[in-house]
Design a protein around this nucleic acid. Structure first.
Lengths: 254, 254
DNA sequence: GATATTATTTATCACTCGATAAAGATCAAG
DNA sequence: CTTGATCTTTATCGAGTGATAAATAATATC
């Protein structure tokens, strides 16, 4: 970068040394631009990064920010709102509940829509910055995923398996869905948090994860629900039934 | 907390108002205490948290830190060294390679040793703080896991399946191990980063994840290796071969 | 073209940060 | 007790932070 960092105002900029006053924008556009760029900026540098650096990246001066947001926290909250709730699609839940399709198709289709929505640098990194700060916005998002995605899945899985029970989701069922979700989600972590890969293809992983869930649910859910209704403990969650001590005779999987 | 935050010097502390000078310690002990507490402190508050707050938490004044560490960065590096390399066990690799046990037993045993080692607030949170900062210490840890854990696993899996090939690990094999690892690891994230659960029992999840890997590896590895040797593309990574769908799902929703 | 409006900048404040130097307090050796 | 060494504190610096007020410059309106 040899050019002296000029904002793209579209005006002719003779070899001036001065930073060139930023073009005047209408307030709504400027505000939107600020939130947009702030999301990009904070997702890269964390929320502790300075407002001066953010402003300079936009080609404006720092106090301008405070004409549009009463505080830095206020700006950050706008970023949250845009990145989090702005991305949520209510169809996710309703389509997961559409029993005209087999469970496998619904799950695969869901993750094919969900992954592209959140597997980007901005979403992923802001999510973890917020999580580490212990912000409630993050806790609420996780709760939302559990309530609107994972629990419906567990619910639908009972139906798919022909289990008719009004009993609340057992711990086994909950952990099983989280396991599938975690396997898929971890791909996004590798790409955008670790930054270890940059050409990740999520499709393989999500198919594997969905398969894991379907197979294991078929194995475990019926028993877990039955036991729960009898007041007995969750068999799959108790410590290993002398798991894998000597030979592999006991129980080969599958 | 009604007590006025006194350092446990073991001395009688009359109702003094003054902060009570910190007890004199021998340098090695003090230094160790600083690193120890710094790990705790930074893992909770992030590396941008101030040295004054850290010092006050120890009952000492801020400049004391600089008698033991030439800079904040220096202190942080000591924290890294303790938390990261200090926890690593070389046995992990050697035990994974011990072919006197079936693969399933080795994997379960590994994760039963690995999870307790890293699934604690300190390790998990420092790991993600460092990852988001893009610190090389983090990239190097991920590379270490890949090289000393995941690649050996993929390698051993070939042996378990009776595949004798010197060909490098295919993408399918690599992603499969990462998928198992991610499913297990995500449990730690839920507990210590999201802080959504506090009584997580990792055993159920790791058994499921290991099973997933074993089953899918049996399915896919042989073909992936054979294709790689023929120069053909990885079949499991190309987009779904009309994935087990009954209806032609005109298209998955956007 | 003159005037009012307002988007943007300059200047600045109070505060916190990491870091340094000098003074003070504690301990061991004589 | 005296002296010297060193662990700890007080005092302070310069740089950077979020935020505010006043000055400037571009636009809109008459």
């Amino acid at each position: 970068m040899s050019t002296p960092k000029m904002p793209e105002t579209g005006l002719e900029t003779p070899p001036d040394r001065k930073p060139a006053r930023a073009a005047r924008m209408n307030p709504e556009a400027r505000r939107e631009q600020l939130v947009e760029q702030a999301a990009e900026f904070f997702s890269e540098n964390g929320f502790d990064a300075g407002t001066r650096q953010l402003a300079s990246q936009l080609g404006v001066t720092q106090p301008l920010i405070y004409r549009y947001f009463k505080s830095k926290e206020d700006l950050i909250n706008e970023v949250y709102r845009m990145v989090y709730v702005g991305q949520w699609q209510d169809e996710w839940t309703s389509r997961l509940r559409d029993r005209s399709l087999p469970m496998q198709d619904r799950l695969i289709a869901f993750y094919r829509s969900y992954c592209p929505a959140i597997f980007n640098r901005r979403w992923m990194r802001i999510f973890f910055f917020a999580a580490l700060k212990g912000l409630d916005i993050n806790a609420r998002y996780v709760a939302r995923v559990a309530k609107r995605i994972l629990h419906p899945i567990a619910d639908e899985m009972r139906a798919e398996l022909g289990i008719d029970s009004a009993a609340p989701i057992t711990r086994t069922e909950e952990e099983l869905v989280w396991l599938m979700h975690g396997a898929v989600f971890y791909q996004g972590i590798r790409e955008h948090v670790y930054r270890t890969v940059d050409d990740m293809d999520y499709d393989f992983g999500l198919r594997m994860a969905v398969d894991l869930y379907l197979v294991k649910a078929r194995d475990l859910v019926a028993r877990a629900v039955a036991n729960a209704e009898d007041g007995k403990p969750d068999p799959s969650l108790v410590h290993p039934p002398c798991q894998a001590t000597r030979k592999p005779p006991s129980r080969p999987w599958q």
